[in-house]
């Protein structure tokens, strides 16, 4: 298939006799190569049941990258092969509640590990969450490569109406695109849980402004500083009473109360409350 960051092929490592996924990354300049390799170093040090394992990183024709950081314009990441990803599964509809719980548990377990190493994923979404259909092991993949390898222009100001959708972005990240904290991964994890239970994306805005509107319709804003910032940034879209039109319980009527309670605690507007 084609991952978001380039061509991804499955292959067999002939030395280690194991099936691997090989991802080709095209690096257009020295700076992005440097950033990508730094990210790769992070990934290679992460060793956990619920993180996709990166075995090695090679240059063209399988050459060793050691000491030749800036000579290549492509790199190949040899990593653990996983049969499918959560996006493919959700494509087919909802998961059972027990599958969703098992996957969510493993997702949080993986997040706890990387957050304890002070690493942020920053691009958590179903397509970056891999599932082994054999034993239902879930692994988080594609660490930060989307940001490093895809050097697309990112809006540094306030909300924009560009075509790029950011369905798993937390309200803080929508307001301040470069304000990355561990809490943004938790927001994305909450959206993913809701999607596993309902088969639908939780907040699927066509653009950032609408994304924020959808969030405000459902997630209450309780802190004064958040209200002040919203009034400054998008005054015409905020209702004067700060009422939510569709609280989570009404938005997800078929989801059981305990899962709703969990979602209400993880999908808070302020990152500090998450």
């Amino acid at each position: 298939g084609c991952g978001g960051n380039g061509l991804v092929l499955s292959a067999t490592d002939s030395r280690a006799c194991r099936k691997v996924a090989v991802k080709k990354i095209v690096l257009s300049d020295a700076r992005s190569m440097k950033h990508a390799l730094r990210e790769i170093k992070i990934i290679r040090r992460l060793d956990h049941d619920n993180i996709v394992k990166v075995y090695e990183v090679l240059g063209p024709k399988g050459s060793d990258l050691q000491g030749e950081l800036f000579k290549f314009s492509v790199a190949y990441i040899v990593q653990e092969y996983m049969e499918t990803d959560l996006a493919c599964l959700l494509e087919q509809g909802t998961l059972t509640e027990e599958h969703a719980k098992l996957f969510m548990y493993q997702l949080l377990r993986g997040l706890k590990y990387i957050h304890s190493a002070n690493v942020l994923h920053r691009d958590l979404k179903p397509a970056n969450i891999f599932i082994s259909t054999e034993d239902l092991v879930l692994k988080i993949g594609d660490f930060g490569l989307a940001r490093i390898a895809d050097q697309h222009y990112s809006h540094k100001g306030y909300l924009s109406e560009g075509l790029v959708t950011k369905w798993y972005r937390s309200p803080r990240l929508l307001l301040s695109p470069n304000n990355y904290t561990k809490a943004i991964d938790m927001w994305a994890a909450g959206c993913i849980l809701a999607e596993m239970l309902t088969g639908k994306m939780l907040f699927a805005g066509a653009h950032e402004l609408e994304q924020m509107q959808l969030i405000l319709d459902t997630i209450p804003v309780v802190r004064e500083e958040d209200k002040e910032e919203l009034l400054r940034v998008m005054p015409s879209f905020v209702s004067s009473t700060w009422e939510v039109k569709r609280p989570l319980r009404k938005l997800l009527p078929d989801v059981n109360r305990e899962a709703i309670d969990f979602l209400e605690k993880i999908l808070t507007f302020s990152p500090m409350d998450r």
Partner: peptide, 20 residues
Amino acid sequence: MRIQDLKVSLKPLHSVNNPI
């Protein structure tokens, strides 16, 4: 720009050898 043709099914939990 891709379409998934593959049908993936999940095993029930009781028949899965999951570490957790």
